[in-house]
Amino acid sequence: MIALATLLLAAATPTPHPAATPHPKASPTPKATPSPGPLTKAALVELDHAESALAGQWKITNAFMAGKDAQDQKRSHFSYAAALLDSQKAWRTYRAAACRVEGGVHAGDVRQPLIVAQCKTALTNARRLQLKGLMASE
């Protein structure tokens, strides 16, 4: 249980992805431009990869939970897969709201889309590990 809790804590902590584009913190705030710059483009590609990896893990974990439902001898109205889906929907809403706040720190700044993309990537990677951990704990 302690190991699970530690794993979840580590997984849920929004540490930046190692491969994420570095945050240009030291540079002065540039003026907003209509098209994303190279850093933002790279961050969006990183987010796409994270989303794909999450989708792959979702299929595995969801199938795992569906298997548990099929084996459930209690025949109760509870469903592992349904509970997982509820949580995943709630996580999506949470991610959008949380990253909106992080982006708000840089409102009006050309870096805002970059910060939001990096935030989503970090939370997405954490969620992927969390979904994986749900099976490892069984």
């Binding site: 592992y80 509970a83 997982l84 509820d86 929907k89 709630a90 949470y94 959008a96």
Partner: peptide
């Protein structure tokens, strides 16, 4: 608020 909803759903699932 969104996080609280997620927390409750996730911990129910777990």
């Amino acid at each position: 608020r969104a996080w609280i909803t997620f927390r409750d759903a996730e911990c129910r699932s777990q």
